[in-house]
Design a protein around this nucleic acid. Structure first.
Lengths: 233, 233, 233, 233
DNA sequence: GATGAATGAGCTTTCATTCAT
DNA sequence: AATGAATGAAAGCTCATTCAT
């Protein structure tokens, strides 16, 4: 990517930023999401560290920029895809799959996010944190709208649903992220989406209605028996 | 803890080990589970780094010793407590509460474990990893035994249940671990244990009752028919 | 050398490299070719160790650079000198003298090379090793060309000749390198070159012919004596 | 070796010494003759470093003891073997083979000796150095006695012969010692012993006869001159 | 004749950051 | 909008040696 051009060429600010972000991603990826040395980025771009510090006065800011850029990319398909889907079940399945697929494609960036950035002091309240909330709140919204429409139970916290979704995905994908296992995004997405849907689904009204009918039948029958008893005796 | 004693006093190996482990915990805790410099530990103990390296030839080994020690402490109450509890629901509630309470009491050690150790190359297959599997597998066991006894559904993977439990707890406790929020261990344990129990529970007793009703209806109907037969004849 | 300038002045990369190499040589020399601490080099240059690591990412690379630089310097006079000399005997004498003189002038660097670098894992196949082979192979070449031209015996391995040359020089100069003795480069070079030449020289055909002549002379003399005897009696 | 006994058992001084020496050799060998940490030796013996320092107050002394012990072992077969051999050629071949075989069997100890001990300040004049001189001087003796007996040339320095022998062996065995090559001790010993013998051997008998011839020619010429004088007068 | 703990000085290396040019 | 050199602080680790018990 960077190697195609003459090293250290003078770029317009925007191009330089794009380049830095792109190479920083590569560096994170090749370091398994454990570290991202500025020197490594500069080296690959054929520029010096100072050039990067001109644009991002601290490493923290660069890190955030890299992850925000990635997050926005991920969000684009996430939100546009979600708009075209209706039905709680289908939406749930979509966000689950989308999240899992994201981990499947960017395990190192995810590790970096989970292990380095999300653990840091400065994450809370950051731009990235806001993006994450927007991302995660789609699940909250799906669940609460489902509850409003009566499809889902209203007595369960949608936030808990959100935590379940992201939590179980994070747990399940850990061996893959650690490069000691693999998984099938489709299958695992099905399982998880199903599970969450069922955990939040209302007990089907049909059952309830059928139950009512049975009770009424029973009542009537008892009456009939009483009557019949009177007739017989 | 260490500051109270005379610095650098000559200790028996066992005491020194205990001291190192204890102070290492402190250091991790005060660093919010982000780092654990050997120099800091040595400094607090009033000894030189080399003295620690006599006992733990690599930092990795010390880290593992610290976390194993902590894990064993946690496991003791976990396993002994679990033995005295019967009933799937109750056991599930116990392990959930226990895990949450552990995070509540040791958020920094948990952060260190999640963010540093569990992300590292050498964790997989380590003693600590084995302890973790033992810990987590209690949940698998509870769920699969529940399925065998007919209390839980047999069509859901107990491993998924395990991942849900630990995943949702990890997610839910994150703001607390980041020191930007708090939570009530009891309440959240109730919610989560409930949710998992319901997600794995067999269809409710109403079905069973409905079955009863049907049987009784059938009986009554037979009687009515007989009576009706007598009336007729 | 370095002490004369203002410490820590900002230098162009090339100058800094030259300076580091030069000071590294000094450090090796003053340490009798036993060690070369980076900190010592940095200290003398008035810079920090990290500044050296910017240029040589590992100590190994710096060591190799220092010795390659020295080797190249030595090779220059070696190869240019050799080109202007013809005759096996003269060439052999030249390379022997040159090698001995090199040891005479740089005993500590030689010690460092022999005792530290050549003993290390990474030497084999390195740039320095290649230079050394080029250096040593001149002797092989001289001997095999001498054999081709009939001046030297063809039944002796030129490689053995090379090993003799460098081996005996290394042995003979050891007391000097250890600073417990001295030697006269000229004298020892004569001895060694002579010895190797003679060991590889063909038995001179002239001797054989001369032997023939002597025999014929002897025969004729006998005849003359016999004649003279007849005259006298 | 050390593992067979209970670790740290109280030993008589002599046994402890023997044990330390033996294990030290192992340590040197397993470290490729590059280093010999005291801690490693103590660890293998199940004792503490201090126990070794009781016996050898400095590492230097232990190192010397280890190498002297080894040298004495080597010397035993060397000297006893040599006594039973007569003839310059045969003795030369024996010492060459013995030396090469020693390197063949103990390449790491040899490396340690060459690269570490022989390069150190304290080697000169040490017990080990004396042993080495005794070892090497056998070659000097063989060569000078050969010269006295007229078998070898008297105009060549026996010391040079010694340096050639040890030098060429050291050079030739370097790839083997570096574990990047191998060699056949017998073959190489033949080559080297031959070469040295020939380099020091007196010119063949033909030369001697030629000398005779010259003398006789001189005598005859004188006679002829006398006769010619008689004829003339 | 040991033990066992601890020292202290050194080493190589890493990396975010600064600043004169 | 950069360069290019350098900093400084820390980290993990090694090892010969000491000394109280």
């Amino acid at each position: 990517m960077a190697e195609e051009r003459k090293a250290g060429a003078r770029l317009r600010r925007g191009d330089r930023i794009a380049e830095i972000i792109a190479v920083a991603r590569e560096v994170i990826t090749e370091n398994n999401g454990v570290e991202m040395p500025i020197g490594e980025i500069a080296g690959r771009l054929g520029i010096v560290e100072g050039a990067i510090y001109r644009i991002y006065p601290t490493k923290r800011q660069l890190v955030m920029a890299v992850l925000c850029d990635w997050y926005e990319e991920v969000m684009a398909s996430y939100e546009s895809g979600l708009e075209q889907i209706s039905g709680v079940r289908e939406q749930l399945r979509f966000v689950t799959y989308h999240h899992i697929d994201c981990i499947y494609r960017y395990p190192e960036l995810v590790n970096f996010y989970f292990g380095v950035v999300r653990m840091s002091r400065e994450y809370w309240g950051s731009e990235l944190h806001k993006l994450n909330r927007r991302y995660a709140n789609r699940v909250v919204k799906i669940l609460s709208e489902g509850a409003l429409r009566g499809e889902l139970r209203a007595d369960k916290s949608p936030r808990l649903g959100r935590d379940i979704l992201f939590g179980v995905v994070e747990q399940s994908t850990w061996p893959y992220r650690m490069k000691v296992g693999t998984f099938d995004p489709d299958e695992i997405a099905d399982n998880i989406a199903d599970l969450i849907y069922n955990a939040f689904a209302r007990p089907p009204e049909t059952d309830v209605r059928r139950h009512d009918v049975a009770e009424r039948l029973l009542g009537i029958s008892e009456e009939l028996r009483a009557i019949a008893g009177g007739v017989r005796s």
